[in-house]
C-alpha cells in the first residue's frame, strides 16, 4: 500500500523529515496553495473526541512564496511532492498550475475540490459535476505531460458518484476520496472535523466511488492511524491512503505504519 502525507498536515516537509522517510512515500501533499497569499486569522483548532476541529480559511503563503521558500528543499531531498491547489476562478486555477508546474522536482498536482463552502472562501465551485469537470479541464490544459494529476473530492456520499464520474471522464491519474467533514468550532465558526473519528465516513466514501467507478485508481483519506486502517481502505477499493491528523498527534505515524505493513507482508 502506498502512503501519502495528507494536504496541510506535514508542515513544509522539513519538520516531518526527522520522523519519516519522505523520499520513500507515494508523496508529500502540500497545504492547498492559491495564486495570492491567504492570511486569514489564526487557524483555530480544537479537540473533539478522536478528532480535531479546524477552522479552515485556506491560509497559505501563495504559490510564489511556496516556490521560493518550500519547494527547493523538497526537490533537493527528492521528496515526491504533490502541490495541492485551488483558486478563486478557473483562470486562477490555471495560473497556479502553470506557476507551480515550472518547479523542478514536482511530481504532480492535487486539485482540491473538497471544499465545503467554496463561495464563503471565494473559490471556484468544484462541488458540482459541471464545476468539477471545468476545473479539471483547465488544470489538464495547463499541466505538462510529465506531471500527475490527483483530484480531491471530499466525502459527501450523495454527491460523490456523479462528481467522480464527471472528473474521471475528463481525466485524472487518481481520485482522493474522503477527508474532513463539515463541522463547527464551539464558538460557531465554520470548521472541519478530521482524525480517527471520521474514518468510517471516509471508508463509506471510498466504497461509494468504487461502486460507481470499479476500475479507477482511488486514494483514501480520513482518520488513518495504523496499518489496519490502511488495509481497511484497501479493502474498500483504495490503492493508497493519505495520513493527516494522526501526524499532528504523533509525527512518527508514517514510519510506524510502514513498519507494520512490512511486518504483515
Amino acid at each position: 500500500m502506498t502512503l501519502y502525507v495528507a494536504s496541510g498536515c506535514g508542515g513544509t516537509g522539513r519538520e516531518l523529515a526527522p520522523y519519516a522517510d519522505l523520499g520513500a512515500l507515494g508523496g508529500f501533499v502540500t497545504r492547498t496553495l492559491t495564486l495570492d497569499p491567504r492570511r486569514g486569522s489564526r487557524l483555530r483548532i480544537s479537540e473533539s473526541p478522536g478528532g480535531l476541529v479546524r477552522a479552515h480559511l485556506l491560509q497559505n503563503p501563495g504559490v510564489d512564496r511556496f516556490l521560493t521558500h518550500e519547494m527547493p528543499w523538497l526537490a533537493q531531498q527528492g521528496v515526491p511532492t504533490w502541490a495541492s491547489v485551488t483558486g478563486a476562478s478557473l483562470d486562477d486555477i490555471a495560473a497556479v498550475v502553470r506557476r507551480v508546474a515550472t518547479a523542478p522536482g514536482l511530481t504532480g498536482i492535487e486539485l482540491n475540490l473538497a471544499v465545503d463552502d467554496p463561495a464563503a472562501l471565494r473559490l471556484h465551485d468544484g462541488s458540482t459535476p459541471k464545476g468539477a469537470a471545468a476545473a479539471v479541464r483547465v488544470v489538464l490544459d495547463a499541466l505538462p505531460d510529465n506531471l500527475g494529476l490527483h483530484v480531491k473530492l471530499g466525502a459527501d456520499v450523495r454527491r460523490l458518484p456523479a462528481l467522480a464520474r464527471a472528473v474521471a471522464e475528463v481525466g485524472a491519474d487518481a481520485l482522493v476520496v474522503g477527508g474532513a467533514l463539515p463541522a463547527s468550532l464551539p464558538n460557531g465558526t465554520p470548521a472541519e472535523l478530521s482524525g480517527p473519528a471520521i474514518l468510517p465516513t471516509a471508508l463509506r466514501a471510498v466504497r461509494a466511488v468504487r461502486d460507481e467507478l470499479p476500475e479507477f485508481p482511488l486514494i483514501g483519506v480520513g482518520g488513518v492511524t495504523s496499518a489496519a486502517d490502511a488495509r481497511a481502505f484497501e479493502a474498500a477499493g483504495a490503492f493508497a491512503v493519505q495520513v493527516g491528523t494522526a501526524l499532528l498527534h504523533d509525527p512518527s505515524t508514517l514510519a510506524r505504519i510502514t513498519a507494520e505493513l512490512e511486518e504483515q507482508s
Binding site: 498536515c9 508542515g11 513544509t12 497545504r31 489564526r42 487557524l43 483548532i45 480535531l52 509525527p251
Partner: peptide
C-alpha cells in the same frame, strides 16, 4: 495544536 511545525495552527 501539534507543536512540531506540521499544522500551521
Amino acid at each position: 495544536p501539534c507543536g512540531t511545525g506540521l499544522c500551521h495552527g
